[in-house]
Structures are given as structure tokens and as C-alpha cells.
Design a protein around this nucleic acid. Sequence first.
DNA 1: CTGAAAGCGCTAACAA
DNA 2: TTGTTAGCGCTTTCAG
Lengths: 356, 356
Amino acid sequence: MVDKNRRLITAHDVARLAGVSQSAVSRTYTKGASVSPATREKVEAAAAALGYRPNLAARSLITRRSNLIAVVVPSMANPFYSAVLEALSQAFELKGYRVLLFSTASNDDSDPILEDVLRYRVEAVILVSSTLSSSFAEECKQTGLPVVLLNRKNDSQTVSSVTSDNVEGGRLTANFLIAGGHQNLAFIAGNDLSSTSRDRELSFTREILSNGLPPPMREIGNFSFDGAIIATRRLLAAHQPPDGIFCANDLMAIAALNVATKEFGLTPGKNISIVGFDNIEMARWPLIGLTTYVQPTMNMVQRAVEIVSAQLSESTVAPTDHVITGSLIVRQTARLPSSGLICVGDETHWRDDPVS
Amino acid sequence: MVDKNRRLITAHDVARLAGVSQSAVSRTYTKGASVSPATREKVEAAAAALGYRPNLAARSLITRRSNLIAVVVPSMANPFYSAVLEALSQAFELKGYRVLLFSTASNDDSDPILEDVLRYRVEAVILVSSTLSSSFAEECKQTGLPVVLLNRKNDSQTVSSVTSDNVEGGRLTANFLIAGGHQNLAFIAGNDLSSTSRDRELSFTREILSNGLPPPMREIGNFSFDGAIIATRRLLAAHQPPDGIFCANDLMAIAALNVATKEFGLTPGKNISIVGFDNIEMARWPLIGLTTYVQPTMNMVQRAVEIVSAQLSESTVAPTDHVITGSLIVRQTARLPSSGLICVGDETHWRDDPVS
DNA sequence: CTGAAAGCGCTAACAA
DNA sequence: TTGTTAGCGCTTTCAG
């Protein structure tokens, strides 16, 4: 890969050794180009001898394609995000792209990220649950760069988004808890700015009110474990504590579970019910057994990749909000309703209308 | 960023608008170049008007620096890896590098990864707990590319590695369990090939034997939650089940905890002790409260970055194995020894020799 | 300090 | 199918 002068091996070097032109070398590594088997063989032999690899930077200069996708994720402390990131990385690899990673954890200055995204000439940007200013997406979009928001809706209607059905999730969870006979419900929100948290909360609250129950109590947990610990303490220490808590994500629901069990001596599924949102790996740990609304990670990622692919081939794709349906998976942290439970393999789900 | 013909804005366009030469534009964006304030101002105005960003691919062609670091991680299902990845991403960003992500989950063919690592002309490769053939590292190294193994030792002595003190961790854990009065110990290994798992096991076993206790029972959990579920069942179903289990990582220890509690009705910390290795986020969840040997993620990542930096500036850095000391953090899953406990803030640690 | 000119390593017409 | 040629957008001498 390097010669005596520590210079990288180029197609020229290979050409010289193989006794062909430099273009022949190029063609050997360009799919769909016509090279005779004889030439290809000579080139490959020489390339192997020298340890040659085409320089993608040089290629991208002329093809205008970097094969790079920028993925911007918030703190990977939330297992939901790492699962999404892994799925994205794999899905894009299959399409011949590589992921350039941008982590926004402990880094509220999004400007250097925007700058690098643009300078690296990535072909598309996936903004996962972006807490970045929505101007970020706008600025990318203005340059003609395909952008898709994953797990967050766009304020403006200029970029595409993929979310799970937050509205349905909130509604279904409310009905589930109501069907389980709960009277005093509570919601632990992510934060007030998050569209996902808001959508989940609004439909949850609406359903509760339309069932003639009092409006749910409310705390903010900042989507974090520690934040939800505090929030839950406040909730359960109230003179009229809730008998059912819906959390905007699993991490917070698990925190609530810990507080309820360890600090208040409650027994989830008996005298307190806790429901989460995401279905992260840990939700299925027997010691957790969290009842939660499933965000279908794979489907969401798949859709995001499809959107990007479409935008990459045709430049005129209207931005759309894609909503992927999830489902409520029933484990042990919430009291069971008398009907509506459906067993699927080793999982139990709950439906409003158990027709199926 | 694009003109009417959807061509990208180049330094030339900026130069024309600013009424300066293209080199002047280049200099404006090259730190350490000499441009008069007047010129710089004109260039910046024109650049802003056109939305110009320097093309890093073109730059890298001439500077031979891509500012890219390849990070190869196995499944991010293990929170330890996502924590490491996030730390790496942040540490490298501070040094002006971006992370090109390679996930090897469900992808045992490492060849396309090697190929892309080389074609993208990344400046260094970090192999996290690589299960890739060790020839991968070799091949990179041969091209002069700095490589560091993180959380895995090298078989050959050609590339640098950073691990936590696996030997000390195994030894300390054995002594901790022995001091806690355990008689029948067991080890759940990752797999037989992993150097980290082996190092932990060997020193654990050695210490047990040298204390006159019977050799520990042994199962393989494949570093995974589900694998350790099976392994633990086998262990606890034996006619002489262990009273203390040491697991090669936290994910497996948590699985063991679940089985012991939920399936065998045991009470960790009372009639069974379980110790992990990593100290992932979840280990501190009250419902888990896992006693574990801490791998100091931040220090390990920091060291890895330092090694890369050193290799990037001087090409002649001898490969070294770096061992970062961790500590045993005591929570609730293991019976306490009568001495050696040290409180540090809200954490309790254990030492062999409580001098401190 | 500034502009002209020469490439970095590659792909893409174009002729042959 | 092949080689020749002209750049892709940038940095970097080198004169001025």
C-alpha cells in the first residue's frame, strides 16, 4: 500500500506493473465497465502484488458520490438509539454506503456538525431524535441534501420524517390502563419540546379525559434514567399518588419501576402499573418485565433507508411524514385488563378491538 | 451550495464573486496560511453568499489526510460497546477527526470492511473487542495504518492494544468471593477465543486454587444475555450448584441474576453471589444492583486516542499493550466480606489490601 | 500577501 | 475492448 517513499500506491503504479493503461486499472474497479478477462487478470495480479486499493476520495471527486451517510444521534446512553444506529449501519452497508457518525451528546453546538456534514459531501443525513435546532435540517435541505428525521417530526414541512405511531401508542396505552381498572393516571414526559413526547402525551390525555377520568398528573424526566427517578419520586410522594404511570420512553419507565419497587415498596402489576415506550432490550429482562409500546426499530430504519434511496435517485420527492405502527406488548409491570390480550409466540400483546 | 445546474459551489466560484484568485479562497480556509484581513473578508462574504464549503475529499487528495478514523465495533446490543463508541466519537471530534463506523454484527465476512477501511484512506483504525480474524489488524498494519485494539489483546505483537486489567480483575474477584465465604465458585466465560475472557478466567481460577478451594465450574455464555441464561440454568441445576458466579461481562451477569432470582428463587447477596465485569449503566439500576469489576471506559478510550495520536505524528512507535487498572464496585448481588470495603462517595469498593 | 500553475488519484468521454 | 485526454476541487510551490 505504500512504496519506499511512503507514497500510496496509485492506479498508475498498478498500470505500469501490469503493462496496461491507467484507465484499464480504473475500469477493473468500476462495475459495469468493459475490460477483457485478460486485462482484468493482469491488473488484479499487479494490484495484489502492490496492495493497491482505489482511493475513494479521488473517485468521489469525479463521480460526485461519496457513499457516505451522516447519522446524527443523541446520547447512546439510551439503548434505543444504539439499536437504531446499528440497524442503520447495517441497512446502509447493504446498499453500499458507510455511516459517518455524529454524536451530539454533551455537545449542544451543532454548528461544527453541520459544517462537517456538508464538507464531507455525505449523500444524505439521518437525524435520529434530533434535539438540534430544526434549522439544521433546513440548512441541509437547502443544499439539496436528502434529510430524514428518525423518531422526531419536523416542525416545518420541508423534510421527511419517520416516527412510530405516537398518537396511537398514547391512545392505546390509556385504554389499556383504563381497561385494567386504573383511576389515577400520570405521565412522565421527555421534555416539552419533543414532538414524540408531546404526541404520546396528548393522545394519552385525550383518551383519559374522554373516558371521564381526571386529567393525568405530569412530571418531566428529560428522557433520562436519573431524571425519571426524581420525577417518579414526586409522583409517588403526592398525597394522592397515581395508580398507573405512562412514561415517554423505556429508560424512564424502568427508572419509575425502580423507584416504585425499591423506594416505595410497591408491587408493579399489583398496586401500581408502569408502561413504557420503545421496547428496548432490557424491557424483556425478567427482572424488569416492562409492559411497553413497541417502536418497531427495524421497520422504521428500513423506511428511512427507503426514503433516502428514493431521494437519491429522483431529486423531486415530496417530503412526507411516515408513521410506522407499533403494538403494546404486555409483560409484568401493569395490571392486566380482563380482555383484549393476545398471545403471539412467547409474547402477549393487547388490542383495543380484539378482532384480529 | 448548488447553482442552477446542480453543480456544487467551488472555490473558483467564490473567487470569481470575491474578485480574488482561487488560491486566496483556499488560503482563507487553510489554517496557518497568510491572507490579508481584507481578502479574507471578501472571500468570506462571497462564500456566505454562495453557501460555499470546502470539499474535504479534494483536500484530502492533496494533503493525504482524510480526518477519518475507522471504528469497528461488534454488536451494539452490549451497552459497554455503545458507551465506548460514544466516548471514542467524542474524543476524536475534539482532535478534529470524525468516526467512520463499521459494525460487525451479523456479518462475519470482514473482508468488505477491510477493503473499505483502506479505500476511504482512514488515518487509523480502532478495533473494539474485535472478533475479526487477527489478520485484519495485520493487514492494516502492513499498509502503515495505525491500529489499536480496544478491549482485546493482540496475539501477535505487532499492534498496540488497550485493555483493562483483566488479570487483576479475575484475581480480585476471586479473593472477594473467597473473603465472602464462598466455597463453590463458577465462571461463565465469553468464549474460548477471547483474550479478555481467558485472562479473567485464568487469574480467577488460579487464585481459587491457590486458596485451596476446588476448581470453579465453568460454562460458556457467548458474551450474550441469552447465552448466559442457558449457562446459568445448567450451573444452578447441578446437584452441587455454585454459591458464587463470576461472569466475563455484565450482560451475562445480569442474565445470571435473572435466572437465579426468577427461576431458582434464590436471593443474590444471600444464598447466591453474582459478580460481573464492565460496569455498564444498567449495573447501577437498583433492581439490578450488580457487583462488578469496573472497566474504566473513559480512561481506556483516552489512552487509545493517545496511542493513535502518537502514531499519527511519529511513524515509529513501538506497539505496546496498555493495561488500565479498574476496581471492584460492590453493590447488592454478592455477599459482603467482613473487611476490605471502602466507601467512595455513594459507591462502595473492595480492596484486597485495604491500605489506601 | 497574492496569483499562476502544477498536480493529488481518479473517472469519463472520445477515438482508435 | 483499449489508450489518450481532460478535468473533479483542492493545496502548494513559486514568482512577483
